[in-house]
Simulated assay, not measured.
Amino acid sequence: MLNTQYVRSIKMIRDEIPSFKKYPFNLPSLKTLDELSFHPNVTFLVGENGMGKSTLLEAIAVALGFNPEGGSFNFNFSTYDSHSPLGDYLQVIKGIEKPRDGFFLRAESFYNVASNIEEMDQEILGRPIIDSFGGVSLHEQSHGEAFFATFLHRFGGNGIYILDEPEAALSPLRQMSMLTRIHDLINENSQFIIATHSPIIMAYPDAKIFELTEEGISESKLEETNHYRIMKQFFDDKNRMLHHLLNG
């Protein structure tokens, strides 16, 4: 397995931040953020809702030159301007090699990416962009099928891939298939940074996991993450957990 590290780490430019009392800098995970060093293959950002993992992932993507709503490096559309200013205060430390491909794939704005592809294909001559996504309109597939088709066909290796909560569009079986595809792309000289709630996805071997909590950001192992422990507790004793949930 190759160890190509396109993004080595990020540093927060703390002395330029105007205030740690305003969003997103008031989030506990960002108040204490100084530097994060990434795994050359796969790095996960995990945590409960509101801890800032998607905000941080978006800022990393923006700092790398991606469109805030997703897409490849050459996507520059905007349907809404709601991304945080965090990316302006991150310094990206890159590796020696430059990626030949890249994509920022986020579930919440994937519809907008699909619409932009159709708009661009109406304006350009030559090979349609949608051919790189499997050749079938992403709007003519289910959300999960379109999302996985992008992951399967558009990602070509030798790339940096930023994924925001991909499990939102994928069944558990598809999430397992995603692990296989991630592994194939790692062997094709790729690097992933992924924000996720899914213990299935974060089970990728030898990955680095950063957990964002009220105490800040800390490196963790799969079995130590809150997501894994809660899921394990539920399925180890489903009836007891349901009793507490439904009967107070």
Rank of each mutant, 00 (worst) to 15 (best):
S132R: 07
Q141K: 15
V136T: 11
A107V: 06
G159M: 04
H139V: 01
R106A: 09
I117P: 00
S137P: 02
H139M: 06
G156L: 13
A149D: 14
H153F: 15
R106Y: 11
E140I: 06
S132F: 14
E145Q: 12
F110N: 00
M120S: 10
S132C: 08
I124W: 00
G126T: 00
G144F: 08
Q141A: 10
N112L: 07
F155T: 06
F155Q: 07
S109T: 15
I162E: 12
D131S: 07
D121C: 04
R106G: 14
Q122G: 04
Q141E: 07
F155S: 05
F110K: 01
E123D: 11
H153W: 12
E140R: 12
D131Y: 07
S132D: 15
S115A: 13
Q122Y: 03
E145P: 01
E123N: 13
Q122V: 10
R127M: 14
F110S: 03
N116Q: 14
Y161Q: 08
H153Q: 06
G134R: 07
D121K: 09
R106V: 07
G157A: 11
S142A: 04
S142C: 10
M120P: 02
H143W: 11
F147C: 05
D121H: 09
P128C: 09
E145K: 11
G135Q: 01
N112K: 12
F133I: 00
V113C: 00
I160G: 00
G126Q: 04
S142D: 10
N116V: 05
F147Q: 02
G126I: 02
G156S: 12
G126K: 02
T150V: 06
S109G: 05
S137V: 04
R154S: 01
G144A: 11
R106K: 13
Y111E: 12
G144W: 04
R127S: 13
S132G: 13
